[in-house]
Design a protein around this nucleic acid. Structure first.
Lengths: 225, 225
DNA sequence: TTTAGAGTTGACCAGCGTGGTCGAATGTTG
DNA sequence: CAACATTCGACCACGCTGGTCAACTCTAAA
C-alpha cells in the first residue's frame, strides 16, 4: 500500500518512521522530544525514550539509525512546527508595538498549547548550539532565530510613543513588561496541561496591563490637556 | 596549631575541610559549586570536581563523607553567602519601589560578581527541591525564599504611582521592566567574568530607563498641569 | 633519629546505565 | 507455502559512577 518509498532504491531508513500511523509517530516523537528537552543531547537516554513511547528498544533503531539521527529529525520537525504553527501566522504588517506583541504572545501560547514539548526542546537545541548537528541544520536554526528577531523588532512604528522619552528605550520597556507577564503566567501554570486551560480570564488580565502600558507610554490622543 | 577541633572527641569529619587554608577551601568549593550548578545533584561527577579542584580523589572523601554531605555543605554555604552578602544589605526601610528595586539589582550584581557560582548553584537547588536534603536545610531554603519575597514585595509605597491605574498592576509592570533589563544585560555579558566588568556605563543606561519609568508610572510632582 | 599520625594520592572496585545489535518470533502479503 | 516487513527484549562491550584503601609523604614531637 504505502510501502512504495520503502521498496524503492534509495529509500532512507527514516521513511519507515514516516510511514507509520500518525498516532504512533506522535507517541515516539513526544517521548523523544520530552527526553531531550529534559536532559539535553548527551544525557538523554534512548532506553527511557522507548519505555515512554511504549515500543521495544529495537524499533527505535529500526526507524532511526542512531541517537544522532533521531535528534536531527526532531530538530527538523521542531523547526517546521514552530515556523508553520507560529511564525508564519504573525501579521508583519501590524506596525503598532503592543498589537504586534499581543499577537506574538497569543500565537505562541496557542502553538505551545498544541505541542508544549516542541518549545521545551527548542530551548535545548538553541542552547546546545551546533554540536551534534550538520551545518545545514545549524544554518536553518540560525534562519529561524533571525526570522523571530525580525518579527519582534522590525517594522514597528515608534512615533506613537510619548515624545519626551527615547523611543528605543520605551520600546524595550514595553517588550520587557509583556515578556514579564507571559513568563510569570507560565510559571503560575506549571504542572497543568496548557491545552486544558481556559485562558479567557488571563487574557482579560493581560489587556488590563496593556491599557496601562498604552496610557503610560503612548502619546495621548487628545493633543494637549 | 589549629588542629584542636580535629583531635577533640566529637569532631566532625567536615572540620578537616573547614580547617584548610582558605584558598584551598575556595578552590574545592568553586569546583563543586560549578559542577553541581552545571549538572544538578544526580548527574554531577565527583571525578570532575576533584580534577577541577586539583586534588586527588581520596581527599574529597577525606573532607566529606559522601557526595550527599558535600552537596549539603554547599547548600548551607550558599544560603549563608546569599543572606550575608546580599539580602542582609538591603535597606527595607526604603519605601519607594524604584529605589528598592535599584538597590536589589545593585546588591545582587555585586554579590554575583563576588561569587557567580553560588548564584548559579542556588538556581539548581531551588529547582531540585527537597530531594537529597534533610528537612532542616529544606526549611532554611524556604526561609530564604520568604525573605527574598518580602524584600521585593513588602513595605512599598504604592501611593506614588499614577492615580488612574491599578497600583498593583503598575507595581508589576515596573518590576518586570527592571527584571527585563537585568536579564538582558546578564545575557549580553555571558562569557565574561562579572568581576572584571566596569559597570558604570550600564548603570548610566539603567538610570535612563528608570527616569522613563518614573515619568510614565509615577504621579507628576507638579499637581495639575 | 625515630616514630606516630595527619595528609594525600590514584589505582582499583562492583555496579549500573549506555547506545547499539541481533536472533527469534510474529505479522502480512502474494 | 515462501518471502519479507515488523517487532521484541535479552544481550554486549564499554565508560563512568561513588566510594575504598594500601601506600606514600610530610610534620612535629620525643
Amino acid at each position: 500500500m504505502w510501502s512504495t518509498r520503502v521498496k524503492k532504491e534509495g529509500s532512507t531508513i527514516i521513511a519507515r518512521f514516516e510511514n507509520l500511523e500518525e498516532s504512533k509517530q506522535q507517541a515516539i516523537r513526544q517521548a523523544a522530544l520530552a527526553e531531550f528537552a529534559a536532559h539535553g543531547y548527551e544525557k538523554a537516554s534512548t532506553n527511557r525514550i522507548v519505555k515512554a513511547a511504549g515500543i521495544g528498544k529495537g524499533m527505535l533503531f529500526y526507524y532511526f539509525t542512531s541517537k544522532q539521527e533521531l535528534y536531527e529529525y526532531l530538530v527538523k520537525y521542531s523547526l517546521e512546527f514552530i515556523q508553520s504553527r507560529y511564525l508564519d501566522k504573525v501579521d508583519a504588517a501590524e506596525r503598532d508595538l503592543i498589537e504586534r506583541l499581543t499577537q506574538l504572545a497569543r500565537l505562541k501560547m496557542e502553538a505551545q498549547a498544541e505541542n508544549e514539548e516542541v518549545f521545551q526542546f527548542s530551548a535545548v537545541f538553541l542552547q546546545e548550539g551546533e554540536a551534534h548537528l550538520p551545518q545545514e541544520l545549524a544554518a536553518n536554526i540560525e534562519e529561524m532565530k533571525q526570522a523571530g528577531y525580525k518579527l519582534m523588532y522590525e517594522g514597528i512604528d515608534k512615533s506613537r510613543f510619548r515624545k519626551d522619552s527615547d523611543p528605543d528605550k520605551v520600546f524595550h520597556l514595553i517588550r520587557w513588561s509583556i515578556d514579564g507577564y507571559q513568563q510569570e503566567l507560565l510559571a503560575r501554570l506549571t504542572g497543568q496541561k496548557l491545552a486544558d486551560i481556559d485562558f479567557a480570564p488571563y487574557w482579560e488580565e493581560f489587556y488590563a496591563y496593556l491599557a496601562i502600558l498604552k496610557k503610560s507610554f503612548y502619546e495621548t490622543e487628545e493633543g494637549s490637556r
